[in-house]
Design a protein around this nucleic acid. Structure first.
Lengths: 363, 363
DNA sequence: CAATATTTGGCAACCGGTTGACAAAATGCG
DNA sequence: CGCATTTTGTCAACCGGTTGCCAAATATTG
């Protein structure tokens, strides 16, 4: 262990000396164990015959050095197959070229597209995404956020479970963007549920439904409230009655468990907090002999992966989750470049995706 | 060059002098821009009245300092709410407390459980998981791997698409573990497909099937070959005929496209390279009026999220992917602690999950 | 062509930890 | 009680970049 490290120093010195005496660059040198092959700006400086700081400038401050020197240095860097050491860079600057993303549950497909969108957008701009999950617990979430915050340039919270003030505290430290929740003073990306919901409700009304049930999600979820409000308002507008039912958990299993309540409510159309609930609900109702959509229509939320695996395929209100991820990253990177945060929450459109699980009431 | 190195020393000295002269510890100091509030070991040293290096040892070398000093330092650290700066630590040691995971496609649910398993196991041992995706391209994969390798302590490759030698090259640099592929000289975690496959084939044979088709996955996938061999062998054993069909891509869409070939082959039972193919295939066959499983049985592979959303629910050979992720991380961390890599590939069991899409042939 | 303005490159001070070498202090032993 | 050992803490040399300041080199201007 100790020897391993000591080796590094000596090798470093040795390597430098080597370079001056011998011409050839033997990139991969054996080390105690670390085996870090990479060249440093000092190696480049030596090869190019300039000062290390000039190398640093040539490589990271465009225009600061003359075109001639620039070229010499770039060639030398290419020859040595140079790669910056991100840690060395992060130490003095604080910049890490990474952004953190915290989700409640990695296996929840709702977050899939968010992750994807964020990853893609981030890496297109040379940022690495660091992922953490909170296991649906506000405490774990805060811990993870704190830990992550010290090592990333900015943080994205997707459907956070912690409370507003904790989020504001994080945001006062470093750029933070929130997805699926609105918090004043913090940049947010939220799907505007109204459009999708009113499309859904109108479609249900047009198909002869009169009584609508909304199956809610977890109490800590800001979105569950927003969606219920949207459903209530749209139902009123379309002259439907709407009742809210609670679920135990926002999963397939939770959906199964709520089936009983749905039946008892007498509703002929159901909108659920998310697709998982809808799928579980549909499975349970079908198992009990109900025909979907002839006897009951089911509309989910999010259009997750697998929503079209069911029979009938699930009608759902799609949130452009990938876009949310993309937007959040963009906001963060803009803030990192000195641009201010958007003063208003960024709204993305939702839309109804009509598949087979909703339709005319035949009962 | 030498000067460059010397510089550091002098600067360091300066800082020390500063610290000794000024007394007050003003924890949150304004900086040029960074605004990092966190205390350093120098602050702790000041508060505890010891040398910074003693603080460093107290905090990371258990037993190296006396219990008394240890306590004083720990208290001071707690009071200042100290958190190590990972970059400062990584710079001299090379240790980053992160492991990288490269998957072919983040949105492919096959990798969900792997990611989950790896994340959970890693963070339980205070390692952060860094995720990258290769978009199914061997070239992107190599690039991502190289980039990642410089910033992590170890790397996990899930179903890698690059060739064996490239992987060995990576593995000679830092600890690497591979999932879903076997490469001599590199620690691997592979599901042992034979058990699950023979269960599947035996079950099909028992249900009266005589002709079996295997729908293969991408050519670069090592697993697709292994699975075909397993199917061939098991079919022979059970006296079934087996034919191999190629798919264009290992997705739902690919499954749809291969439906035609399946019909033409005359097989009454199909085993696919993965569940996505199976789902697409089933959808297409059902759309064409075939009854599953009465006329044709379908068996998928992996038991991904959503495999039970279909009607009938998908029969599939489950690979314990979460366990693969866990095992891979464990191997990596063991290697980082100086333990050798396992000499043999680690095998995890597969098993047949019988659901509704396979059964007795009624045609 | 001298005087001034502008580039350009070098020096050295940092960022915040880790660790080998060494000396001082504490402990053990005869 | 003195000497040999062991423990404990300090010193200083790093890791590999970035950047403010200054001087040399170059370009511009009168």
């Amino acid at each position: 262990m100790a020897t391993g490290l000591f080796c590094c120093h000596e090798v470093y010195d040795g390597a430098v000396t080597d370079l001056t005496s011998t011409g050839a660059a033997t990139a991969p040198t054996k080390r105690g164990r670390g085996e870090k092959s990479s060249a440093t700006i000092y190696d480049i400086a030596k090869l190019a015959g300039v000062n290390p700081s000039t190398v640093s400038r040539a490589l990271s401050k465009p225009g600061r050095v003359s075109a001639k020197t620039q070229k010499i240095i770039e060639d030398a860097a290419a020859e040595l197959n140079y790669q910056v050491n991100p840690f060395a860079r992060a130490l003095p600057t604080g910049r890490t070229q990474t952004i953190g993303l915290i989700v409640a549950d990695i296996t929840n497909p709702t977050f899939f597209d968010i992750i994807r969108g964020a990853e893609t957008t981030g890496s297109a701009r040379d940022y690495t995404l660091v992922l953490a999950e909170s296991a649906e617990s506000p405490e774990t979430e805060v811990t993870a956020a704190r830990r992550l915050l010290s090592t990333v340039d900015g943080l994205i919270l997707a459907s956070p479970r912690m409370d507003d003030d904790q989020i504001r505290a994080l945001a006062s430290d470093k750029p933070v963007a929130v997805i699926n929740r609105e918090i004043t003073g913090v940049p947010c990306v939220v799907p505007d549920v109204n459009k999708g919901i009113s499309e859904a409700v109108r479609s249900l009304a047009a198909n002869g439904h009169q009584k609508l049930a909304y199956v809610a999600g977890p109490a800590q979820s800001w979105m569950t409230g927003r969606r219920w409000e949207g459903v209530k308002a749209a139902a009123e507008w379309s002259k439907l009655s709407a009742v809210r039912l609670e679920s135990s958990k926002p999963t397939v299993d939770g959906g199964r468990q709520v089936a009983r309540d749905v039946l008892e409510s007498g509703a002929t159309a159901v909108i659920t907090y998310n697709d998982l609930l809808a799928i579980g609900l549909m499975q349970e109702l079908q198992a009990g002999g109900m025909r979907v959509p002839d006897q009951i229509s089911i509309v989910g939320f999010d259009d997750i992966f697998g929503a079209d695996f069911t029979t009938p395929a699930l009608t759902t209100v799609r949130s452009p989750l990938g876009e949310c991820g993309t937007r959040a990253v963009t906001i963060l990177l803009d803030m990192l470049q000195g641009h201010g945060a958007p003063s208003q929450a960024v709204r993305v459109e939702t839309e109804l995706v009509v598949r087979g699980s909703s339709g005319r009431l035949l009962a």
